[in-house]
């Protein structure tokens, strides 16, 4: 088991193997991601029952929660890739950083937008300094910082390595941000409304949520693979194996 994992790690660490692997996997992943997202969202929009407190506005959850979850997972994944890139100077990890950041930022923006729109019917306003919305706003800022840094540095490798360091620092920071923002929210209670619903979700709502979550995560994976391929194609455009591959 362990040796298989190690072999995988080394194989996927080589751009050549990764490129072949993604050529085989991508078509299936595209289909699966689109089908799961579509099924999850349509199920949530049209077939799941209404929430007895919030009415139909709660249906935003089927896009909001998956986007927020995937944005957070993506940031952590970027930090892990950054650590690997810095410590082992692994090429694929550098490529991954560049591949994860754009879609991660988009998902953070989606989570914020949907959260704000959901806020209007629920809290009566588009923006509340709620702990979760605030954390997501800071997460978006962190993503934008990584993207801005990569854009500012002309050299690809140097930009990726700088982004690696920034995202490692950022991941350490995210943990503290989460804790500090919760503390901050409790400090100023009264000025904010808390929408922490601890009630358990009935299965008719939970299942479509899980399906759309799987769909969004897979779309993220698709986006990462496609962007990583673009990056490999750009970096290795002069190598023979790639010219034979395309």
């Amino acid at each position: 088991m362990w040796s298989t994992l190690v072999r995988w790690y080394h194989q996927l660490g080589s751009p050549r193997y990764f490129y072949r692997f993604s050529t085989v996997v991508l078509p299936w992943l595209w289909v699966l991601a689109i089908v799961l997202t579509a099924v999850g969202l349509v199920w949530g929009l049209a077939f799941a029952p209404e929430d007895y407190q919030q009415g139909n506005s709660y249906r935003i959850i089927f896009i909001h929660v998956p986007a927020a979850g995937a944005a957070l997972t993506g940031y952590v994944a970027m930090g892990v890739a950054g650590l690997v890139a810095l410590v082992w100077r692994m090429k694929m990890a550098e490529i991954m950083i560049r591949a994860i950041a754009p879609f991660g930022a988009v998902l953070a923006a989606v989570a914020l937008l949907t959260g704000a729109i959901w806020g209007k019917p629920t809290w009566g306003t588009y923006w509340v300094w709620d702990a979760r919305l605030t954390s997501m706003l800071i997460m978006l800022f962190l993503y934008l910082g990584v993207v801005a840094l990569m854009k500012a540095i002309e050299d690809d490798r140097q930009g990726a390595r700088a982004a690696s360091l920034l995202s490692v620092v950022g991941v350490i920071n995210v943990v503290v941000v989460k804790y500090s923002v919760e503390w901050w929210n409790s400090l100023h209670q009264g000025s904010t409304i808390n929408l922490t619903r601890e009630t358990t979700m009935p299965a008719e709502m939970l299942v479509p949520l899980l399906v759309s979550m799987a769909g969004i995560y897979l779309l993220f994976a698709v986006s990462v693979l496609v962007r990583a391929r673009a990056e490999i194609l750009r970096r290795e455009r002069k190598s023979r194996w790639l010219q034979e591959e395309v």
């Binding site: 139909n56 506005s57 988009v106 989606v110 729109i117 019917p121 779309l219 496609v226 962007r227």
Partner: peptide
Amino acid sequence: QMGRHGAYVWSAYGLSLLLIVASLVSAV
């Protein structure tokens, strides 16, 4: 119409899909 919440639900979904599709298209 989604009760009275149609505008919120549909604008949230529309904007989200727009952003996600735009990002995927630029990647492709």
